[in-house]
Computed example of a mutant assay.
Amino acid sequence: MIKEFLLYWKKIQRAKRIKKLKKKIPPYLQKDFEVELNYKLWSTKGARFAASHRSETLHRLSGQTVGYLSAYLIIVGLVNIYHLQFWMITLNDNQVNFASMSFSVLILLFSQLESSENFSLKSDRYHNCALDISELYDKLRYVKTYENNNPDKKDILKKISIDYDKILKRNENHKPIDYSKFQLTKAPYYELNLIDRTLIRTEYYWRVHFKYHLFMYGPIIIFLTINFYKIFYSKS
C-alpha cells in the first residue's frame, strides 16, 4: 500500500515538473516550424524598427546636448565681458576661466564619444534590416494564406528561413531594450500589466534619455539649487 502510494506521488510530482518546464518554453516553440518562423520574423522586425527609432533618438539628443553645453560655455564667457552676476552667485575671473575650460573639455570629450557611436548610420542600418525582414514576413504570410496546400511549401519555408539567417548575419543585433520596447507596443499579446509597462518605460528612459537630460538640464538645476540655498541661508 505504501509502495503504491509513493509510486503515485512520484508520478504526480513528475507531471508537475513537466508542466512547469512547458511553461518556461516560449509558446511559439511548442508549435510547428511555420509558427516559430512567423513569430521570429514578426518579433525581430518589430525589435529592429524599435532599435532604429532608439538610434535616431540618441542622434537627436546627442546634437541637442552639444548645443546646450555650447550655450552654457558662451554664457559663462560673457560674465567676464559684461561683469554679470548670476542672481545670488558672483564669479571672479578665475572661477569664470575654470568654468569655461571645464565646459570646453566636456564638449570636446562628449562630441568625440558621441560621434564614434554613429547613431545616424546605425538607425539607417536597423531600419533597412527591418524592411528586409518585413519583406520575408509578408512572403511568409502570403504562403500561409494563399498557398497553404502548395506541395513546395516546405521548400519555400526553408528558403525564407535561410534568407532570414543571412539577414541576421550581415546586420548588427539589436539591444534587449529594443525587444522590450517592441513588447510594450504589443502589451495585450505579451500580457504586460501596469507594473511591467512602467518598468520597461523606466528602463528605456534610463538607457536612452537620462544621460542627455542630465547634461542638458543638470547645470540649470545646480544653478537654481545653489541660488535657492543662498536665499534660504541668508534669511535664516
Rank of each mutant, 00 (worst) to 15 (best):
K139G: 03
D93Y: 09
Y190V: 01
G218D: 04
D138R: 14
L41R: 02
F232N: 05
K169E: 14
V96L: 05
Y229V: 10
R125S: 12
A99H: 03
H53V: 11
S52L: 00
S102W: 10
I89F: 14
F232P: 02
L7E: 10
G46E: 00
I133W: 00
T185H: 08
Y190G: 02
V105F: 14
D124E: 15
N38M: 06
G63M: 05
F49D: 00
E36N: 10
L29E: 13
L106S: 04
L106N: 02
S120G: 13
Y68I: 03
T202A: 11
L7A: 11
F49H: 01
K3T: 08
R60Y: 10
E56Q: 10
S134M: 07
L58R: 02
R197Y: 03
F103N: 00
S234Y: 11
A50Q: 04
W9R: 13
Y205M: 04
M88Q: 12
H127E: 12
S180L: 14
T185C: 08
F49L: 08
P188H: 09
Y126D: 00
V208I: 15
I133N: 02
R17Q: 11
A15M: 07
E36P: 00
L73D: 06
M101W: 12
L91M: 14
M101H: 10
L131K: 15
F232E: 04
H83D: 08
D155F: 15
G218M: 06
E56V: 03
S116D: 09
G67K: 07
P151A: 03
L41E: 01
I25K: 08
L84M: 11
W87G: 07
D93V: 11
I231A: 07
A50K: 03
K20A: 12
F210L: 13
D152L: 15
K23A: 14
L192V: 04
K169F: 09
I81Q: 06
I156S: 07
S102R: 09
K31D: 10
Y137C: 02
N80H: 07
F119H: 05
Q95L: 09
D165G: 05
R17C: 04
L140Y: 01
T65N: 02
I222A: 09
N148M: 09
F223L: 12
S234G: 03
L113Q: 11
S115E: 15
V208M: 03
K159C: 11
I74R: 05
Y39S: 08
Y137P: 00
S52T: 04
S120Y: 13
